[in-house]
Simulated assay, not measured.
Amino acid sequence: MKKFALIGAAGYVAPRHMKAIKETGNILTAALDPNDSVGIIDSYFPDTNFFTEFERFDRHVDKQRRKGETIDYVSICSPNYLHDAHIRFALRNNAHAICEKPLVLNPWNIDALEEIEAEMSSKVYNILQLRLHPALIELKDQVQNIQHPDTKHEIDLTYITSRGNWYFTSWKGDSSKSGGIASNIGIHFFDMLIWIFGKIQMNVVHLLEHDKSAGYLELENARVRWFLSIDETTLPPDIQAAGQRTYRSITVDGKEIEFSGGFTDLHTLSYQDILDGNGFGLAHARPSIETVYTIRNARPDLNMGEQHPFIQK
């Protein structure tokens, strides 16, 4: 049984990590969040030591380490801009770090973490759960087994997840803290596309606003037109008429890729993969971090690359 600590216990994704820790037969011994709305812990580990101040949490973990009760893993569900610091905290305490996406905001943060990791016996792991989705594994196998290895598939990626005014008051609405739309809601899709279709050869941005972004990626085996938005007015009319606030679509050569189901246990699978000695490390996370960094700092250019159909609207 491995001992876990969790940073960001009140966050949206934290219950998935608690569930994964429990379902893999391990224990959560300490948790941290400045917000004390963490009653969900009772559903998994009611005996967890909970802290609202980092200093007290740090002291607790250090005391446990000195008593020989070292934390084995630190699960990180904190705001994006704090991931780097919290990963470093884990490594300093001889614990492996399991971090949500995006792992960090900038490529040079990965450079520094690689240096620190090389000095330690602990590792850094990123939750890239789409790589474990059966439908996407099947798609990757199909692409790899194609007779013509230089084939360029035509892909449209559309993801609209409506958010209210609260979003722009929270850290998520501050691009210096969240990394902007591409990092906050798109990075797992970009990672998935690179994983399946190969390295990026061209990265063009057509639209870059606080609540929506769009562009064109050319990969080794794909041409991708992408559109990301948290603005409900960008939802297709039929989706709006149905009262839905989210729309997700990925088409490959005109065929819809259905992977809406199968998400329930992906965090547990991710944890088990890490505990089995596998997992996705710093090198796996780098390509998508570089991609969204480029998008965030790009100057939109409508004269390059193929535009997503929603751009015409």
Rank of each mutant, 00 (worst) to 15 (best):
V205Q: 00
S213C: 14
W226F: 15
V124M: 05
K255S: 08
I200F: 00
I181H: 01
Q142A: 13
L6C: 10
V252G: 06
R223S: 00
Y44T: 02
I137W: 09
T29Q: 11
D42L: 08
D42P: 00
I196G: 08
W108C: 11
R131C: 01
P34H: 13
A214E: 03
S43C: 07
L91V: 04
E119P: 13
S170G: 13
E114W: 07
P46G: 04
S170F: 08
G68W: 12
I239Q: 10
S121V: 08
W166S: 08
G186C: 06
R248L: 08
A214Y: 00
Q244S: 11
A222W: 12
W171T: 09
V104T: 14
K172L: 01
K172I: 11
H86W: 13
K123M: 12
K67S: 15
G39H: 01
R163V: 01
A242M: 00
D33L: 09
G281Q: 09
Q272Y: 00
G254E: 10
A285E: 12
G198C: 11
N126F: 14
F45D: 07
R92D: 15
S260W: 01
T24I: 01
I289W: 03
V104C: 08
I21L: 11
N303L: 06
N35G: 05
D47K: 14
R225G: 03
R223L: 06
D36H: 14
C77W: 07
W166L: 14
I289D: 00
Y271N: 03
I155N: 07
K67G: 01
S178F: 15
A97I: 05
G277Y: 07
V143R: 07
V224G: 09
K140F: 03
D191N: 15
G68R: 15
Y159I: 02
S37M: 07
L217K: 11
S121N: 13
N80T: 07
Y271P: 02
K177Y: 11
D156H: 15
A14C: 08
R131I: 02
A85G: 07
S122T: 12
D111C: 05
W171Q: 11
G11P: 04
